[in-house]
Amino acid sequence: MRYPLAASMLALALLAGCSSTPMTADQGASVEDRTASSAGTIPTVRPDQMQGAGLAALRDPNNILSKRAIMFDYDSFTIRGEFMPLVEAHGRFLAANPQMKMLIQGSADERGSREYNLALGQKRSDAVKKSLMLLGAKEGQIESVSLGEEKPQCTERNEACYAENRRGEMLYAGEF
């Protein structure tokens, strides 16, 4: 509910702007923050146009949205504090761009049963999905799946590597 409100506010401001003197420059900056886009002011939300602008933000290495991985502690499924801003940024982005779709791939380290590790990876991707939904993303936008221990980022056998592989990876449509 909050973002439709924001969007109508934005439209309102633009209409008012048209009718009179242009608004001060900081208006653009605040809109940019809201939608977490670096592509400048966004006049009207149009799915086709948005796609390009949104993906650019997703690829910009200076933008937090270009970061996609959330690491988890051993045997844990809660999102650590350090990853909260990342989850928030993506949650808001999904909320502001309801046409965007996301696939979350959860993973586990290689120790133990492949099938149980698949379930652990799922628990991690679900944790990310739930958090994104609490931030306004819609159920239909996100699919959470698991890769278990099958697609490790790191193949060495040490705790650092295992930690690297206990992750949730957020991918937008077109990236997987």
Binding site: L103, Q105, L118, E143, V145, S146, L147, E150, K151
Partner: peptide, 9 residues
Amino acid sequence: YVSFEAKKP
């Protein structure tokens, strides 16, 4: 069996 050919199990 389980195959990941569709990028998911």
